[in-house]
Amino acid sequence: MMEQAFFLILAAFAVGAALSVIIQRSPIYSAFSLIGVMACLAATYIMLKAQFLGAVQLIVYAGAIMVLFVFVIMLLNVRKEENTLDKHRYLWLLALPFAATLIVEVLYTILKVTSDFTSLPEMAKRPIIGDSQSIGYGLFTSYLMPFELTSILILLAIVGSVILARREKE
């Protein structure tokens, strides 16, 4: 009961902050709202007993990626988004039915799928898996190949972003 109340509070905060991301005109406020969403999601991960990923969410997403966003926004000195939405009112007319379809579809599927979900008895006996030990074990046994490929991807991203953002010399 307590847990459900806590979840509802977190969910309300997350949805509110997510709405704020798309309603705010100024990108810097959007970025701060997105940090709020990520903090709520980190708390949700911890509720799901995925403590390690909760910490990684805060450190990597809220700590590193969003700092990069805020840094670029401030570097480029982005002013408020001009009021181009009036020019593109048809986009709202397009987006709202799209969103309604998407949400109804997804919620219908969720209700259909999860109605017979909790009836798997052998799941209750398995140990808890959210700690860093089980994640590290998985990463270095069955998922070793993706893990190593990820390091190559990161290397490519570093080189690529340096080349893209470099100022060309005449």
Binding site: A11, P27, V78, L91, W92
Partner: peptide, 21 residues
Amino acid sequence: LSAVLFTIGAVGVFVKRNVIS
């Protein structure tokens, strides 16, 4: 909750004009 957040993000991609947003 995940579905709602995903939908909000998808709508944002439609209606936002700023690349960073």
